[in-house]
Design a protein around this nucleic acid. Structure first.
Length: 820
DNA sequence: GTGCCTCGGGG
DNA sequence: GTGTACGAGGCAC
């Protein structure tokens, strides 16, 4: 007798049970109990596309390959007509017994001359299951089956059948935020092999604790003592087992907290087997480290911010303090971490660090809470788990969205490029966006327009798709894309896969925006997150088409997209000029113009007339009128130009775009100069004062009045000195330290000062104590530190680099006010 | 311009 | 694990 449960999947994986792959969906029932729904009726498969007229059915049916004394065989085959990059193909859907059989059979079949290609043979089994069975994490399902005992920490439900049920969403997954503090002496590298974890903080809605393994008197009620580091690690496991979180979050926990915990746990031979299936935390080291816990989502909120949210933030630094300040208007506790090891050794003021520790965990929790709507909407759009959404970039999210949609359109997905193909693609460059170079200066009454979602609407309206490119059905009367050097076209008869998908994303977003336009109820946050996720995804299609690792890569499609973009922006500029507006600046999808004698009514009439002629979903939007603004040109990279401008809104708030912050390894004098100049301009709007300030700094550098401490550059040694091929300044300095018998190795922070001379920089780089009488190279600090840090800012104000370097009395700088 | 290297996040 | 995915910017050549 079968029973029924209703549940939300959270993490999906599989295990081999009795020789069959069994999908495990860890999640919560609708009445909020942990459960693992197991389903073993899904079979692994891939597609084989035979060459024209080749018959391989019988050959494939009994195909087997033996590797390492293991037999991998085809279980059965089904035949389908499918669409593949714009054409109809007869395909064989080849089933195997185990997911692990697929790669072996795939590699063998690739050699078969009768086969054109093997497709979708690299879609991980659990993801394949989710796509084919329409399983979307965090949404509700009905399962029929029975509870059965399994080696799991939660009840296991063996399902005979699973189907979507209702439109509920798991709104409040249990989130537990973690943060560790470790012992690191001042000026030393973080060394998990050597130094212990000294405290661990947990923060959840209804649970806050800091565990620490030295005892001291404290009034902090959330502090709890243990006797050793190994007990601390055991406590870490115990808290997680007891709290039963769906999500464990941390800040840079992929790269720090969890790998550190793993190394320390290994030292004490403690298994971090916190997975609900008794599995251990898996640390995977690649270019970037990841920490995965089967069955519990590990959310590294830092990674999500950097990969997905960074574009919409003002801050250029992604440390917890900056991010918390922008998203929460809160800060980290102001403590000097350099003092932690001493506090620990002397057992004084440890509680200051406990409260710091808890606060970090709390900030991370709050940030995760704030971003959860965006994350969960991205999960619902792409159908990936939170873990995957957290670690994929936007191009990968686009790809997985396409992979999920492909079966609905009977499309077979193209393969990932081979390494040779990737190499070739990387060499391809093409023309980007059009930038109308502004005349640097200050202007009044600036009207701003932009094409709403320019590239997505171009892709949709012009049917830009690898599958509609240069179709034979339109070859005779083709209308070419506006490319200067190529004649390409897109089908006029059939809408392509990608244009269909992208228009669907755009219209879904428009509908949501319409709904939330004038409502600010409790549903607003979720719907706003949803429209934002739809926008992020739609905006990433163009980049995806030109991304070297994309399955649906098409250089022609990417080229056509920017070509149409250039066409439309030039078109609106021409039309604006014809209507009597003066164009100040234009970049990719936006134009800035002055009203002169025109009125706001003229502006509206203008945008109406432009919109009447635009195809499909394309639309020119009036963004607003600004009392004054400053513009500057600043070209960078292949994808066009970065916006560099400043506007003052009617409310008096200043909007500065396009300034990057200085790096950590810059000298203090450069950091301070940039900060101060920005401060003067932003707060006092006094460019003369900023100019005089920087002149003073340059002058002080020339006369060596800036103290030596401010010109020290800090750079970390990454490997053994002998392992360096290219010896930068810090390597040369490290070598000299070593020659003096001082032990320097990887991780050492090297301080150096560039001194006078005509030799290359590394030969002039000295230790601060080797420098006498402030004999640093003033011109190096002026030209390579101060100027790059402030140059762009002064360009914006109409000053030239030469003006900053001018030694004589300052030249008059009249007439840069070009407004009316 | 190319190629190698560093940093970021974390303590 | 049906794997093998950082990306921008600076210095030396």
């Amino acid at each position: 007798m079968a029973s029924i449960i209703y549940f939300f999947p959270i993490d999906v994986t599989y295990k081999i049970i009795d020789g069959k792959p069994a999908i495990h969906m860890f999640g919560r029932t609708l009445d909020n109990k942990q459960v693992c729904v197991i389903y073993d009726k899904f079979e692994p498969y891939f597609y084989a596309i035979p060459k024209k007229n080749a018959d391989i059915y019988d050959e494939l049916k009994n195909f087997k390959v033996i590797r390492n004394e293991q037999e991998h065989s085809v279980a059965r085959i089904e035949q389908y007509k499918k669409k593949y990059l714009g054409r109809e193909v007869a395909t064989l859907k080849v089933f195997t017994k185990l997911p692990f059989d697929v790669p072996f059979i795939r590699e063998e079949l690739k050699k078969n001359p009768k086969i054109e290609s093997i497709n979708e043979a690299d879609i991980l089994f659990a993801r394949r299951f989710m796509i084919d069975n329409n399983i979307i994490p965090l949404t509700s399902y009905k399962a029929e089956g029975n509870f059965q005992s399994q080696k799991l920490k939660v009840p296991a439900f063996i399902a005979e059948k699973i189907e979507p049920f209702g439109d509920e969403t798991l709104l409040a997954p249990k989130v537990l935020s973690i943060d560790i503090e470790t012992y690191t002496p001042p000026y030393k590298e973080i060394e998990p092999e050597k130094n212990p974890i000294i405290m661990v903080a947990f923060y959840a809605k209804d649970f806050q604790k800091v565990f620490v393994w030295k005892r001291f008197t404290t009034s902090l009620e959330y502090v709890e003592f243990v006797d050793s580091e190994s007990e601390l690690i055991s406590k870490f496991k115990e808290v997680i087992e007891n709290y039963k979180p769906d999500i464990i979050t941390g800040y840079f926990s992929d790269g720090f907290d969890l790998p550190y915990l793993k190394i320390r746990a290994d030292k004490y031979k403690i298994k971090l087997d916190i997975g609900l299936d008794f599995s251990e935390i898996k640390i995977a080291k690649g270019k970037s480290t990841t920490a995965e816990i089967t069955s519990i989502i590990h959310l590294d909120i830092f990674k999500f911010i950097k990969k997905i949210v960074s574009g919409t933030l003002e801050t250029n630094a992604y440390d917890l303090n900056s991010v918390a300040f922008e998203l929460l208007d809160e800060k980290k506790h102001d403590v000097d971490l350099g003092e932690l090891s001493k506090a620990w050794d002397t057992k004084t003021e440890i509680d200051k660090f406990c409260s710091y520790n808890l606060n970090d965990a709390r900030l991370c929790y709050k940030i995760a809470e704030k971003l959860m709507p965006t994350i969960s909407e991205m999960v619902k759009i792409t159908g990936l788990t939170i873990y995957d959404v957290n670690r994929m970039g936007l191009s990968q999210l686009v790809e997985w969205y396409l992979l999920r949609q492909a079966p609905n359109f009977n499309e077979i997905a193209p393969n990932k490029p081979t390494s040779e193909e990737t190499f070739k693609r990387k060499l391809q460059t093409y023309k980007g966006a059009f930038v109308f170079e502004p005349k640097p200066g200050l202007y009044n009454n600036v009207a701003v327009f932009d094409y709403r979602s320019l590239y997505p609407t171009i892709i949709g309206s012009h049917n830009i798709c690898p599958g509609t490119l240069n179709c034979s059905c339109c070859a005779e009367q083709a209308k070419f894309a506006p490319l200067e050097d190529k004649k390409i076209w897109f089908c006029k008869k059939k809408k392509g896969f990608i244009p269909t998908i992208i228009e669907d994303l755009i219209t879904r977003r428009m509908r949501i925006k319409e709904i939330i336009k004038d409502q600010k109820d409790e549903k607003f946050a979720v719907l706003d997150a949803r429209q934002n996720s739809l926008k992020l995804l739609a905006n990433s299609f163009y980049g995806y088409l030109g991304f070297f690792a994309a399955r649906w890569y098409s250089l022609e499609c990417a080229q056509a997209t920017t070509a149409f973009g250039r066409y439309y922006i030039k078109d609106v500029i021409a039309k604006a000029e014809k209507s009597g507006f003066k164009i100040l600046y234009g970049d990719t999808d936006s134009i800035f113009l002055t009203l002169d004698s025109k009125t706001i009514d003229d502006v509206k009439k203008f945008s109406e007339s432009v919109n009447q002629e635009l195809p499909g979903l394309m639309e020119l939007e009036f963004k607003g009128l600004y009392p004054s603004g400053i513009f500057v040109s600043a070209k960078v990279g292949a994808y066009g130009a970065k916006k560099k401008y400043a506007l003052i809104s009617e409310e008096g708030s200043l909007k500065i775009k396009g300034f990057e912050s200085v790096r950590r390894n810059w000298s203090l004098v450069a950091k301070e100069a940039q900060e101060k100049v920005l401060e003067i301009i932003l707060k006092e709007q006094d460019s003369k004062k900023a100019f005089d300030y920087i002149k003073k700094i340059i002058d002080e550098l020339r006369n060596r009045k800036i103290p030596l401490e401010k010109v020290i550059i800090h750079t970390q040694l990454q490997k053994e000195i002998s392992d360096y091929d290219a010896k930068g300044p810090h390597v040369a300095v490290a070598q000299r330290l070593k020659n003096q018998g001082i032990n320097v190795g990887p991780g050492a922070m090297i301080q150096f000062v560039v001194t006078q001379g005509s030799d290359i920089i590394r030969n002039r780089s000295k230790l601060p104590e080797e420098v006498e009488n402030n004999e640093y190279d003033s011109s190096y600090y002026i030209n390579n530190q101060i100027i790059p840090a402030v140059e762009k800012i002064f360009e914006l104000l109409g000053y030239k680099k030469e003006d900053l370097l001018e030694t004589k009395e300052q030249t008059k700088l009249g007439g840069f006010f070009n407004g009316n």
